[in-house]
């Protein structure tokens, strides 16, 4: 409870000495607001919060609203009103009827899930080594990992495309036994490699913070080092594992370049969700309404993931900075 005189009921009697009321009337409305805000800064903060929050919400949510608007417009209509004239939710069903959109989504989710599991598994081993062991060449190795993550993925596309598609000898030593272009492998392998460095950095930080005593205790109690990693260190680093996992999942799910180019265009050829959206575009017609609806549907899995895991993500991202 504040005993600040300005907030106090009796405060009025102090400066309200007769002529004060006369001044009030002479002041313009804006001047009175300004006075009020100077007296009560929390009011000003509240107004600013509402204003800035409104701006942020509008800029981030308006595109989604616009997508919804487009999907509500009848096929062929290019003049989209600010408010939809009709609400016809059947487009969301048509999306699945006209093309195998579920399969497209499954493909993308499959990539995201596979890469996440793979990255967490391998990244955990690397994170354990970097975070908890002392060995020669640790810093250069970690640094080279950082350097690798600076490469624009596009620069690696041509060599990877040739390797996956044309079975060229790699380093003159070996060729891939089968052509993996158009299979999940052509997407999962390069994307795992690109998302790995960030995951390793996050996991290294977290695994490095688990006290040695806990690992020692687990080993004395009967685990191997690897057992201690999966039974003690990983569960205790849950926010870090969740953060690395979700960032990887979202990166891969929304990835366009490799997943689009390394696969065919049909759902059966492991095309990602992007191809699903494009599939509503034929040589002569473009169903913008269905494309918009498909785009909205494609957002749902990631939105659910973020809502469910937001606590973990926030604590995961801030925990490194706020070490106990």
């Amino acid at each position: 409870m504040s005993i600040d005189a300005r907030n106090h009921d009796d405060a009025e009697t102090f400066d309200g000495s007769g002529d004060g009321t006369g001044d009030e009337e002479n002041k313009s409305r804006i001047a009175r607001w300004a006075d009020d805000w100077i007296q009560n800064p929390e009011k000003a903060y509240a107004v600013m919060l509402v204003f800035l929050g409104g701006v942020l919400l509008t800029t981030s949510l308006f595109p989604l609203y616009w997508l919804f608007n487009v999907s509500m417009a009848p096929p062929g209509q290019t003049d989209i009103p600010l408010l939809p004239t009709t609400i016809d939710l059947s487009v969301f069903i048509q999306v699945f009827q006209q093309v195998p959109f579920a399969r497209f989504m499954f493909n993308s989710l499959f990539y995201a899930f596979t890469v996440t599991v793979f990255v967490l598994l391998v990244g955990s081993l690397a994170g354990y080594a970097f975070g908890r062991l002392e060995f020669r060449g640790k810093t250069p190795l970690l640094f080279s990992l950082l350097v690798l993550s600076f490469f624009p993925p596009a620069t690696l596309f041509i060599p990877l495309f040739r390797a996956f598609n044309q079975q060229v000898p790699m380093l003159g030593l070996f060729t891939l036994p089968v052509e993996i272009y158009g299979t999940p492998g052509a997407v999962v392998t390069p994307l795992s490699a690109f998302t790995m460095p960030l995951a390793i950095f996050i996991l290294t930080t977290f695994y490095g913070q688990i006290p040695d005593g806990l690992e020692d205790a687990a080993r004395v109690e009967g685990t191997t080092r690897l057992g201690a990693l999966f039974r003690v260190i990983m569960p205790l680093s849950a926010p870090g594992v969740a953060t690395a996992g979700i960032l990887t999942f979202i990166t891969v799910y929304t990835e366009f370049f490799f997943s689009f180019l390394m696969t065919g265009n049909s759902a059966a050829e492991w095309a990602p969700v992007v191809d699903g959206v494009i599939a509503f575009q034929t040589q002569y017609t473009v169903r913008y309404d269905l494309q918009a609806a498909a785009s909205l549907i494609a957002i749902v899995p990631v939105a659910i993931l973020v809502v469910v895991a937001q606590d973990k993500i926030i604590s995961g991202l801030t925990q490194g900075a706020l070490k106990e």
Partner: peptide, 19 residues
């Protein structure tokens, strides 16, 4: 390895598994 030595250990920082 420690697990095969028939030992048990109590640590200075207690080292209970917090989870």
């Amino acid at each position: 390895p420690p697990k095969d030595r028939g030992i048990a250990m109590v640590f200075q920082n207690i080292a209970l598994f917090p989870h």
